[in-house]
Amino acid sequence: PPSSTAAPSSLPPYFIKGSIIQLADGELKRVEDLRTEDFIQSAEISSELKIDSSTVERIEGSQTSANFAVVQFSVGEHRSQVSVEVLLEYPFFVFGQGWSSCCPDRTTQLLELPCSKLSVGDVCISLTLKNLK
């Protein structure tokens, strides 16, 4: 069975539009200006972190709260099944597309972060450890 990760009940502050993000090379960018290449290049510099491609396989409403969704991913080359329970407005970064959430209207309303609709088949950026065995 897929593993499940508990999610916090509110979004962290770095997703708010205008938040300053430091890339691995020290460059500073606003969260809304981040591009796919920024994550890829930062992971290349990192000695510990590796970027994985996580494909959205299923999106369901959470049974515990109407504010949450359960997103099932197929992670990495081994297509490991991982489910996460996240707030509807939680933004994921989709390769070549940018920030996307289950409810982009809420994301834009709460964070002012420009956001697309997260859909089955979208390939999100996720992290794993480089030395994961």
Binding site: P1, P2, S3, P12, P13, Y14, F15, S19, I20, I21, Q22, L23, A24, L28, V31, L34, D38, F39, S42, S46, L49, I51, D52, S54, F73, V75, G76, H78, S80, Q81, V82, V84, F92, F93, C124, I125, S126, L127, T128, L132
Partner: peptide, 25 residues
């Protein structure tokens, strides 16, 4: 009067979920 304020800077990896594949064996 405008006083300078420190602006928080967040590391890039904070924004990306850490999706760990379930261990099998």
């Amino acid at each position: 009067n405008v006083e300078p304020r420190s602006v928080p800077v967040f590391p890039w990896h904070s924004l990306v979920p850490f999706l760990e594949p379930s261990q099998s064996g």
